[in-house]
Write a protein that binds this DNA or RNA. Sequence first.
DNA 1: GCGCTAAGTTAGACTTATTCTAGATTTACA
DNA 2: TGTAAATCTAGAATAAGTCTAACTTAGCGC
Lengths: 146, 146
Amino acid sequence: MSSMSGELRQAFLAADVRPTVQRYAVLHYLARNRVHATAEEIFREVNRRDPRASRATVYNSLKSLARAGLVREVVSDGKAARFDASLHPHHHFVCERCGEVEDVAWFELPAGKAPLGARQVRSFEVVFRGVCEKCAAAQSLTGETE
Amino acid sequence: MSSMSGELRQAFLAADVRPTVQRYAVLHYLARNRVHATAEEIFREVNRRDPRASRATVYNSLKSLARAGLVREVVSDGKAARFDASLHPHHHFVCERCGEVEDVAWFELPAGKAPLGARQVRSFEVVFRGVCEKCAAAQSLTGETE
DNA sequence: GCGCTAAGTTAGACTTATTCTAGATTTACA
DNA sequence: TGTAAATCTAGAATAAGTCTAACTTAGCGC
């Protein structure tokens, strides 16, 4: 581990995750590209530059990072899991028409609303489902019913 | 389609989904067993009784039922998708320790909180993550750190 | 009821996603 | 540095989900 820039370095230290070149590359990719990437995409993109990471390592890294809370698995209807750097919290909107997952700006939940009993909550997110702007526009144009 | 009992029959009619023996069996299983089942589990259980359904049909049925809103795909960290009869709305709690998904009683979100723009929201749910009661108890007993 | 057509179902081959394995490398720390 | 524990690699193995082509059923008009 030679050079790791600010925020990410902090994140690794704070989360007590062994920083390895490969984990860094994975988190770096997710943090830089605000996309909901599949493991396969991350694998491809990370390997376009130098530090190569095997497929298994991408999966392992995502798992470690997720356990540490640096990355989270995002809801998705497809079969492949999708991931998100979770350095900055946000909610999600899933389009039932095209499957796209969009970020929704963060807002808090009113305290005490949720009947959670003795469970220890470490994080939460709201997942909205419906029709995204693009699909809504396409629908009204063609007058489609379904 | 000969005999279909009350609530489910209504659900099919209301959702304008062609009622088939197989779809009925799938929805029936999910409605009766408040579990977050994988497609594989549903396949196995449905086929223990009479109306047999091929694997592909279980997947197709789940897809149709989900599109119609009678079933929903539940968050899950594992690789296999999990499903839920969504006749009665509720939120979810995911244990980061054991992976278990638990239901959380329904509550509304304060109106106007979410910055959703022109998106058409048809449903939403809150996903909490943390440590479930059982895992919390196990942890405090053994004094484990991680 | 009868027959037509579109929608749905079947088994199993196939594709894609994820995990496993065994040996080579790297990290943390004394 | 030297060493043990953690991590990485390539590729084989497994699991999840989709596709295909032929067969069945539901919905609807007569």
